[in-house]
Amino acid sequence: MVDFARVQKELQECSRDIERSGIKVIPKSEATLARLIGTIPGPVGTPYEGGTFQIDIALPDAYPFEPPKMQFTTKVWHPNISSQSGAICLDILKDQWSPALTLKTALLSVQALLSAPQPDDPQDAVVAQQYLKDYQTFVGTARYWTETFAKKSSLGIVEKVQKLVEMGFPEAQARSTLEAAGGDENLALEKLCSG
């Protein structure tokens, strides 16, 4: 049986600290505390900056003796996160888990993983290959994915292309420039104007 009293305390502690950490954990539904949704901000100075990433959390019966199961629901381009399923490769979510850790410290570790990819122990081999062999393209793709999937408030990629087309640029060129700029519409506009 999940230790719900502890989970309750963890949620309280997390919400007290939300201003500072930016890390949020809320129950998925009112029915149970065994399914939660975690939210982490993309770390500053990384291709994930500005993005908000959602993580699906399922607590096994033996929690806190067994690690929480965590999986990105927001699509992420990262060597240690599956670009398809969102599965995370992180030691503390497996055999290095300890009851001394919490949902918040686990999410902080996931956030740290975004800052410091470990391509030698990949979850997603394709992304890891790209990270090692063509770092610039990796950064561009990761930034593009962040823009496209992790920024809910900003415009979707379709709208951005539409906006550039309205300014008079050809659609194919607008799209490719936008992709090259990692989804940054202002940077794309600059490139389109100068090019």
Binding site: S82, S83, Q84, S85, A87, D121, P122, Q123, D124, A125, V126
Partner: peptide, 9 residues
Amino acid sequence: MQNHDGVQV
């Protein structure tokens, strides 16, 4: 795009 999840396991 090919994904190779699990290859390393």
